[in-house]
Design a protein around this nucleic acid. Structure first.
Length: 580
RNA sequence: GCCCUCGUAGCUCAGGGGAUAGAGCGUCGGCCUCCGGAGCCGGAUGCGCAGGUUCGAAUCCUGCCGAGGGCACCA
């Protein structure tokens, strides 16, 4: 009867498209939008009336005449105001759409037509350095995008481009030697990476002989000296062990198999240079091998080069990033490459993309997209720092989140046993931090505020989790089989039932909107709206106290809401406890 | 100097061509013996400024103002 899309607005647009074509004599966007005056409004008549030299209301009426019978879908379609068409869906249509959506575990969300290979580059901490709030955004946003991309049927390749190579490793390895490998490993195991790095840095800056040893060590590392490589691997292994602990704490999907550090591209770097040189794209400038990319200039308004090979013969990150492109397009057959990287990298990534396209390594049909994000700010509106002025350790931030959540959960539900309290506190605390990060437009900075993110009111994870838990509680009292209820017939009668049902059906549109814009906050806003619609329903439509068949129908709406909440939060990497 | 991003209520944020610009917090005034208050109803305060495009602009374009960032050998 209807195709597999759940979004009633989309279905409506499909229905109106023919009528508009007939009236306008060509393709016209029907401009279907949600409406405060009806279930939906169709605004296309206003847009074409001018060109047709006719009053918009007349055009709208013509469209309605050509629309044919839509009684299977709509209860009414009226022309209103200057030429809007207000649509009220029929209750049967809503119920049927809902039943279809709920019969599938994608809950009505459309799958991709053809699966694509999507590479998501995110997190990227540095070896022997602490993960701090700066890594939070990339990791959390990337994780949510990965989950959404997979959900709709793509093949997703996670790439954790860790900083595991470069000149700092000379000093880090020498410090490792000074400290003794066992002691260094012990420091890493308690998560004191910053201490290690800072000590190395301090010696490097104050001790000339250490500095010289470090310099020689870099040379040895690059030359592939066995002993040096072994120590380097120790640093990388201990660091990734630590990263994994933070990833488990954060509850993100990244694992060892996703590691694709800078060092992985070492052998490709000379190839990048050779291929660029062979194509005549490489130029010598101030002793460096560079590539000039159209449209980029420096302070003096001179062409800005992309440095492929430094004056000292070393490579830098532009070269590695180009090697990445070659690898991802060639070896991994990427259709899309998403870089979840801070906004300041915008120009760099634009230059890399332009260079890769010029060199012919990045075909036009392959997407390279910078998923940029802003900073995490403190209440002073400056970059979030700890009391001591350092960047905030991610792991201690997460510990604090769980502690604060535990206090909130104890207050909310003192009867829970301590095991449940602990596991719920984890879901709530981590969820709150992630949701705070995901729920605002990623390109903007956001203000980190414990009280707000852990509040049970407003657009927060605890609010959504609590809504979910409350629904689960209804089922515990109802004494019915939730799975069976989900298959029941629905009666959409009360306005709050209608609003809730329509909100559930918007899940499809919300997921796709979030994906199209690579903006998880779109999904957050939707989930919050859904929870609000449920609250209104719950206030006005007694569930357990109703008689049949209303009771079962309302239980089915409860079940549907809970499933969308839990699935939606899951797409954000946030768990939804059944009680809290 | 050039380029990029951002300026929406007292605060934190949605809304990114369609009807009267929303939410949470805060604030002021009412209400509720309700499945676990995710309580309910109402008031007050707002699209940085100025032009332009459009039937219609918070939304698109231009300029200005303000904040942040980037602009060759750190990644």
């Amino acid at each position: 009867m209807f195709d597999d899309m759940a979004d009633p607005l989309d279905l409506l647009a499909t229905r109106f498209a023919d009528a508009f074509r007939a009236v306008a004599g060509g393709d016209v966007d029907p401009v279907v939008r949600p409406s405060e005056h009806a279930d939906a409004q169709v605004n296309g008549a206003l847009a074409i009336a001018k060109a047709m030299g006719r009053p918009p209301r007349d055009v709208a009426n013509d469209v309605l005449e050509r629309l044919g019978n839509v009684s299977d879908m709509c209860e009414s379609v009226d022309v209103a105001g200057p030429g809007f068409m207000n649509v009220v869906f029929s209750a049967d249509f809503i119920a049927e759409q809902l039943r279809t959506a709920l019969s599938d575990n994608l809950l009505g969300v459309r799958r991709v037509g053809t699966a694509q290979n999507v590479i998501v580059d995110y997190s990227a901490p540095n070896v022997a350095k602490e993960m701090h709030v700066g890594h939070l955004r990339s990791t959390v946003i990337g994780d949510a995008l990965v989950r959404m991309l997979e959900f709709v049927g793509n093949r997703v390749i996670r790439e954790n481009h860790i900083g595991d190579w470069g000149t700092p490793f000379g000093m880090l390895i020498e410090h490792l030697i000074d400290l003794g490998e066992d002691r260094a490993a012990a420091e890493f195991s308690v998560g004191d990476l910053d201490g290690f790095y800072k000590e190395a840095r301090k010696k490097f800056e104050s001790d000339e002989s250490f500095k010289e040893r470090s310099r020689l060590r870099v040379v040895a590392l690059q030359a592939g000296d066995d002993d040096t490589l072994r120590m380097w691997r120790t640093l990388v292994a201990e660091s990734t062990k630590y990263f994994n602990r933070v990833y488990r704490q954060l509850d993100v999907l990244l694992e060892d198999a996703d590691l694709m550090g800078e060092s992985a591209y070492n052998e490709l770097l000379p190839t990048v240079v050779e291929r660029l040189r062979a194509s005549g794209l490489l130029q010598s400038s101030d002793g460096a091998d560079v590539m000039f990319v159209d449209g980029f200039t420096n302070r003096e308004n001179e062409p800005l080069p992309l440095i492929i090979r430094k004056g000292d013969g070393g490579y830098n990150y532009a070269t590695t990033d180009l090697a990445c492109v070659i690898d991802r397009v060639g070896r991994l057959s990427a259709d899309r490459m998403w870089y979840v990287v801070g906004a300041p990298q915008a120009q760099h990534l634009q230059m890399v993309e332009a260079a890769a396209r010029t060199a012919g390594w990045l075909p036009g049909e392959v997407e390279m997209r910078h998923v940029a994000f802003g900073n995490v700010l403190g209440s002073d509106k400056k970059m979030l720092k700890s009391r001591s002025g350092d960047s905030v350790k991610l792991s201690s931030l997460l510990d604090e989140a769980v502690e604060r959540a535990a206090a909130a959960v104890r207050e909310k539900n003192p009867d829970l046993d301590s095991d449940s309290q602990n596991s719920i506190a984890r879901m709530v605390g981590i969820g709150a931090v992630k949701y705070a990060d995901l729920s605002t437009d990623r390109v903007k900075d956001y203000v980190f505020d414990w009280d707000r993110m852990l509040s049970f009111d407003g657009n927060t994870a605890p609010y959504l989790q609590y809504a979910h838990a409350r629904i689960c509680s209804i089922f515990r009292r109802a004494g019915v089989d939730r799975a069976a209820v989900g298959q029941s017939d629905l009666a959409i009668v009360a306005p709050q039932e209608r609003a809730l049902a329509l909100a559930i059906l918007q899940f499809d549109a919300a997921v796709w909107d979030a994906l199209d814009k690579a903006s998880p906050h779109r999904l957050c806003t939707y989930l919050y709206d859904l929870a609000t619609a449920f609250t209104s329903f719950y206030e006005n439509c007694p569930v357990l106290k109703s008689s049949e068949p209303t009771r079962t129908s309302r239980l089915a709406l409860c079940d549907a809401t809970a499933r969308v909440l839990s699935t939606g939060l899951g797409l954000l990497g946030i768990e939804a406890p059944e009680a809290m």
